[in-house]
Design a protein around this nucleic acid. Structure first.
Length: 509
RNA sequence: UCCCCGGUAGCUCAAUGGCAGAGCGAGCGGCUGUUAACCGCUAGGUUGUAGGUUCGAGUCCUACCCGGGGAGCCA
């Protein structure tokens, strides 16, 4: 009889015990001794991660999560692996078949079902876990019809999982990616905050359409007919902002404003590019980190980028050990050595001009010719970072002709070739992970370059005025969060390191 | 946007122009302190869509849709 079991272990959590009445207990068909389906987020009790790490036999516990797999034993036991997202591992629950009405109540316990269970932690008799939960009562808030539940207890392709983006975080890989991405984001803020950087919230909607950073998504309040009219005439005076507006492609220009007032600054937020890019490295919506530092030159900028990558990668390796071991074992066997190479060596710093000489004398046959003045092709970058140096490479001081107006112009070299203080950090497998530069702080040079690139200085008058009043040397870079996640996890497709990827034709979820 | 490859059961994939299959998953049964469980049985298909060639098309041709990879653009 169920009530006779009420003297079983109360939960070790601060949550209400099963015995205490809880009017907001909404667990469907939960018997009175079953643990409530809701719990205060301020005192939720130990997670599966905490129980697996610290729980001792004899402890009482309540767990809430989702069933990964169930195995029935004719010895009168059912084994249920429960995952609550707190870690990669599942907690094994042991359900004795002599629990009241067991057969009927346990029917909905299938892969994908939600489950709350209370019981006692015991030392596991099995081999694969230190402890397990011997369940004294349970409830199933929501079942998952095994005939229809899309996640089976087997491996799925990433392509398939992308089509069920609302369920894929329940898989091992995507759970691990989500935890690593979260930890990485935390480490990024920590890195900058520890060094006195200010997080500047630069706008999502912008009217700068001249940054040269790709196609812009238009933001408008006009109805279709009016919009077509405005677009045809290039006249948006009647639109919401009185001029053409779009989603930001970069927060850099605004970050420069704050950096030249408040000191070292960084942005961390979503960025949008309306490029028709279809590659495993591009998204229409992605997250970008853009530090900007006053009184800083390109050398300081490169120092910052290198320290940033090394520190954040090391932090994730230290704090996400289980997930990182999973990536090394199941996703990319070479991941540890790739990350070791980042940790153990200084990044190679290679002037563009020397990179050209190196590529030319390498003996490699490239599909695209290597020539001073042309941008490095993907195959060139891969050769440098993956084949030749086998570690991150910072190529710097690129020809002026292939870089945007805001990069600081160098004195011409002895052959009269002009370069700018630009730098790209190239890493194995992912390619360009950082692009940055020292900014042009001389007003006359900046204005001349804007005109040369067909940009009306008046349209960015406020940006130019940073050079009119109290101009200082300054530098910064942009780093794609998703590419950093790819580097850390070994995931090959950028669409699998962001919860809901936006690419051409895809915004379902 | 360009180039290459692919689309067959819920998933992953086989099938010389000639009867559409396997593994896994699912259901049922057996066995078991199980753990990628194991053994047996069962169900499950308009072969991406629309045309065409052929006695006959999953297979060959055309167009389109979708997916993957490479390139460009970049982070």
């Amino acid at each position: 009889m169920r009530l006779a079991r009420a003297d079983n272990q109360p939960p070790a959590t601060l949550a209400p015990t099963p015995e205490s009445p809880r009017p907001q207990n909404r667990s469907m068909s939960a018997p009175s001794t079953a643990p409530p389906a809701t719990v205060s987020p301020l005192s939720p009790g130990p997670t599966v991660a905490a129980l697996l790490a610290d729980a001792q036999p004899g402890d009482s516990a309540v767990v809430r999560g989702w069933v990964r797999t169930r195995r029935d034993s004719k010895a009168g036991l059912s084994f249920v692996e429960l995952n609550d997202g707190s870690c990669l591992s599942n907690l094994q629950l042991v359900l004795p078949h002599d629990l009241p009405d067991f057969a009927e109540r346990a029917t909905p316990i299938t892969t994908g079902a939600s489950l709350v269970a209370t019981g006692e932690i015991v030392a596991s008799q099995g081999k694969n876990q230190r402890v397990e939960l011997r369940v004294s009562d349970f409830a199933v808030p929501g079942g998952a019809d095994p005939d229809r539940y899309p996640l089976q207890k087997k491996r799925h392709s990433f392509e398939y999982l992308r089509e069920i983006a609302h369920l894929r975080p329940r898989s091992n890989t995507f759970g691990a990616v989500a935890r690593v991405r979260n930890r990485l984001s935390h480490a990024i803020h920590e890195f900058f905050q520890d060094r006195g950087f200010l997080w500047a919230h630069t706008p999502i909607i912008t009217t700068n359409d001249c940054e040269g950073a790709g196609e812009v998504f238009t933001v408008t309040a006009l109805q279709a007919a009016k919009l077509a009219e405005a677009a045809a005439g290039g006249d948006f005076v009647r639109d919401f902002f009185g001029k053409h507006a779009g989603l930001t492609v970069s927060g850099q220009l605004e970050a420069e404003v704050y950096a030249t007032s408040l000191g070292p600054t960084y942005t961390f937020g979503p960025t949008f590019r309306a490029e028709n890019s279809n590659t495993p490295r591009h998204l229409a919506e992605f997250w970008m980190i853009e530090p900007e530092v006053p009184f800083c030159d390109l050398e300081g900028d490169m120092d910052l980028a290198e320290a940033f990558v090394k520190t954040t990668v090391a932090e994730v390796r230290a704090r996400c050990e289980e997930d990182m071991a999973f990536f090394a074992q199941r996703i990319d066997k070479t991941l540890p050595q790739t990350l070791d190479a980042i940790a153990d060596h200084a990044f190679v710093r290679l002037p563009y001009t020397e990179a050209i000489d190196l590529l030319k004398s390498s003996g490699e046959s490239f599909e695209y010719p290597v020539e001073w003045g042309h941008d490095l092709q993907t195959e060139h970058e891969r050769f440098l970072t993956e084949t030749h140096f086998k570690r991150p490479v910072i190529v710097h001081d690129y020809p002026v002709g292939i870089k945007p107006f805001y990069m600081r112009v160098n004195e011409p070299d002895e052959q009269g070739r002009e370069t700018v203080r630009a730098m790209d950090v190239l890493v194995p497998r992912v390619g360009e992970i950082v692009g940055g530069s020292q900014r042009e702080e001389r007003e006359d040079v900046l204005v001349a370059r804007m005109k040369a690139q067909g940009i009306d200085p008046a349209s960015l008058w406020w940006y130019v005025e940073l050079r009119t009043y109290g101009s200082v040397p300054h530098a910064g870079f942009g780093l794609g969060l998703e590419r950093l996640v790819q580097l850390v996890t070994g995931m090959q497709n950028v669409r699998d390191v962001i919860p809901f990827p936006r690419t051409p034709g895809h915004a379902e979820f």
